Amino acid sequence: MKLPTDPAENLAALIRCPSVTPAEGGALTALEAMLVPLGFTVERPVFSADGTPDIENLHARRSGEGPHLMFAGHTDVVPAGDEAAWTHAPFAAEIVDGVMYGRGAVDMKGGIACFVAALARHVGATGGPRGPVSLLITGDEEGPAINGTVRLLEWAARKGERWDACLLGEPTNPDRLGDMIKVGRRGSLSGTLTVLGRQGHAAYPHLADNPVRGLMTLLDALLGPPFDAGTERFQPTNLEVTSVDVGNTATNVIPARASAAFNVRFNDTWSAESLQAEIHNRLDAASRRRKYRKGRKEPIGFDLAWRDNPSHVFLTHDEKLIGTLSRSVEAVTGVRPVLSTSGGTSDARFIKDYCPVVEFGLVGQTMHMVDERVPLADLETLTEIYRRFIGNWFGEQ
């Protein structure tokens, strides 16, 4: 039986499955076909929740004795957008001048294809890792992330699964393979601030309270001073206003309310709870200090609503996991990777509650873009890094 040792062939099979969130699109079926010949038992649970699409996931396990290694990732992809803007069809996996084009090539079907190829080469050369290996692959990472990794982890844990470490194959390298391993992530907290005013005619402002004035005052309090200067391993906490709206279609009406959505990426100076308290304190102080307009006595009235399930900051300290991956990367590329906590959130925020987790994958420059693509040479290099990591983590080379 032919083993899936070629990462380019593996990736082409996955790209040709149009698995745009929440569609499975055949991607998990293609992945299962690769894993069964390697001795994996595959299950594909479907999870549901009110108001969200059903999501099919994949759990594959190869048994063994000793520490348990998890590889995690997702086969769902973002939409291709205007397919006419693509130089090569987004789900054709065309190869031109040594580069494969397709949605998910980098984020992150490429990482999955390389890990499977690395396992296949290890199985072909040695019979396979002596310890257990699991793949937890979701179809919900690019979507609401409700019926994907978080539910898959809970489901597997209830079945008695325990993991000693996880490698998440997200694209982590900014410029070239070997640049960066993600060893943690900032937290993410989102809220909506609504200022309550008094509607009125724009020609008679003294009879109204314009909430836009109050909103500007309160947003100014959130945007400065800085929350912190950063820490040893994390960038400074940063708040960005992501939308402002008054819901007003008339130009001569002072609106009754104005709202702004914001997102904060925070470091280990804060917890989600302490950051919420700081933001409340800033708003309370600003609402009392300045009014809607000169002459008004009432403080600015506002409501603050938090989005559910904030992402918590975390940092992985597992020396075996980080050291083994770093040495494997350096041995193959000649580059000592930087240990970073930059970037957005990932499913590592769920995995860290079950075992130490790090992230390492392809170069991310074209992810989510038109003509997303990956050099075949990078696929081969990443496969060799993963193969070396697997052997070294299990102490087999």
Score class of each variant (00 low, 15 high):
Val77Gln: 04
Ala229Pro: 02
Gln276Glu: 13
Ala84Lys: 14
Arg307Met: 15
His312Leu: 11
Thr194Trp: 06
Val370His: 12
Ile254Glu: 11
Leu38Arg: 01
Gln199Asp: 08
Ser340Trp: 01
Ala8Tyr: 02
Thr383Gln: 07
Pro225Glu: 11
Gly73Thr: 02
Ala60Cys: 04
Ala120Pro: 00
Arg62Gly: 12
Ile351Tyr: 04
Leu177Lys: 04
Gly51Ile: 00
Gly334Trp: 09
Met108Ile: 08
Glu330Gln: 15
Ala165Met: 11
Lys352Asn: 12
Asp347Leu: 05
Leu222Val: 11
Glu43Leu: 05
Val358Gly: 03
Cys17Tyr: 08
Ala33Cys: 09
Tyr101Asn: 09
Leu362Glu: 05
Glu24Thr: 04
Thr126Gly: 10
Gly66His: 09
Ile181His: 01
Asp107Trp: 01
Arg289Lys: 14
Gly143Ile: 00
Arg61Gly: 03
Gly39Thr: 03
Lys291Thr: 13
Pro226Tyr: 04
His68Lys: 09
Glu359Tyr: 03
Gln276Trp: 06
Pro90Gly: 12
Asn263Met: 11
Thr194Pro: 11
Met1Gln: 09
Asn10Ala: 10
Gly64Asp: 10
Ser243Met: 14
Pro375Cys: 13
Pro299Val: 10
Ser328Asn: 05
Glu372Asn: 10
Val78Glu: 11
Thr324Val: 15
Gly301Ser: 14
Leu339Thr: 02
Phe115Glu: 09
Thr316Cys: 15
Pro225Ala: 12
Thr231Gln: 02
Gly143Cys: 07
Val335Asn: 04
Val99Phe: 13
Trp306Pro: 04
Ser259Glu: 15
Arg387Phe: 03
Leu167Phe: 09
Gln276Pro: 00
Ala277Tyr: 04
Arg61Asp: 02
Asn210Ile: 09
Ala203Phe: 12
Ala229Trp: 01
Gly39Lys: 00
Met1Arg: 09
Gly111Asp: 10
Tyr386Glu: 07
Thr316Lys: 04
Arg185Tyr: 07
Ala305Phe: 09
Ser190Tyr: 12
Gly148Met: 04
Thr126Tyr: 14
Val313Ile: 09
Ala285Gln: 14
Ser188Cys: 14
Glu65Asp: 12
Asp97Trp: 13
Pro7Glu: 10
Val253Trp: 06
Phe91Glu: 12
Thr87Trp: 00
Ala92Lys: 07
Asp76Pro: 00
Glu278Asn: 02
Thr194Val: 13
Arg158Met: 15
Val96Thr: 10
Gly214Arg: 03
Tyr204Gln: 13
Arg16Ser: 09
Leu167Thr: 00
Thr5Tyr: 04
Gly334Glu: 07
Ile137Arg: 01
Gly64Asn: 12
Ser311Glu: 10
Ala120Thr: 02
Glu240Val: 14
Arg186Phe: 04
Leu222His: 08
Ile55Leu: 14
Val370Leu: 14
Ala286Trp: 13
Asp378Pro: 00
Asp245His: 06
Thr333Arg: 05
Ala165Val: 06
Arg327Asn: 15
